[in-house]
């Protein structure tokens, strides 16, 4: 599902990622951890092509994402659900609309899109807030809307950047359980986190990034 070859990313002469090689098979659950500034978010951004690599290549679902045309990249991104660290919700849209609009431009009719969005929101305990605008939601609620949006179109790959950062322990546990269910249904999941309680709660392949290099690749604890 994911292949990285000699992946290097430099910002203003500072090397964030230093020639990373990685292979993630379809259906895997993977944690990406490391100290702040280790390159976790940058690695995820390179996977959904919000950034371009300085050197090396990124393959997702068999396609080299850093060389795709804009249209093909849009189509690939529809197979990838991303939970952004800063949520990236549309501020003019309600909770329901934020989840619905990604389904609409994927071709779902208004009624089907609303039904599916409502189901996902209900699963995340947000259905009672469906008409609220993001600005009136708490950080945790906004994070769950972002998660709902990423899950709504049942992507083959889910990339989550600190998805439990604003959630309490109970909600974080529920989210992890939800991600496990989705993974069980065949989706590949990559979660960037520095929350070690998550790693302990879920036995999965874990990558530890340190100064732009993969320091450890195996089960938790190292």
């Amino acid at each position: 599902m994911i292949r990285l070859r000699n992946l290097t990313k430099t910002y203003d002469g500072r090397r964030i990622l230093r020639g990373i090689d990685l292979q993630v098979e379809a259906g895997e659950f993977l944690f990406l951890t490391g100290a702040s500034g280790a390159g976790k978010s940058t690695l995820l951004k390179l996977l959904y092509a919000a950034e371009r690599p300085t050197a090396g290549g990124v393959w997702v679902a068999g396609q080299r994402v850093d060389q795709l045309s804009r249209h093909k990249l849009a189509l690939l991104r529809r197979k990838v659900g991303v939970v952004f660290q800063d949520f990236k919700l549309l501020r003019h849209k309600t909770v329901l609309e934020n989840v619905t609009f990604v389904l609409r431009f994927q071709g779902l009719g208004a009624r089907d899109a609303h039904r599916r969005a409502y189901q996902v929101l209900k699963r995340l305990g947000l259905h009672h807030r469906q008409s609220a605008l993001p600005e009136v939601l708490s950080g945790g609620e906004q994070q769950r809307v972002a998660i709902a949006r990423a899950l709504a179109y049942q992507p083959r790959l889910i990339l989550a950047d600190e998805p439990t950062g604003n959630l309490d322990a109970d909600l974080a546990g529920e989210l992890l359980s939800l991600l496990c269910d989705i993974n069980y249904q065949g989706a590949t999941i990559m979660v960037a986190t520095h929350d070690h309680s998550l790693l302990e709660a879920m036995p999965a392949r874990t990558l530890i990034l340190n100064q732009g290099l993969i320091e450890y690749d195996g089960s938790w604890p190292p």
Binding site: H71, A74, R77, R78, K88, H92, V102, F105
Partner: peptide
């Protein structure tokens, strides 16, 4: 601009 960026990131095509 922010909304357009978000739309691109979640897979909206240029025509959308």
């Amino acid at each position: 601009a922010d909304e357009i960026t978000i739309m691109r990131l979640v897979g909206a095509t240029e025509s959308a």
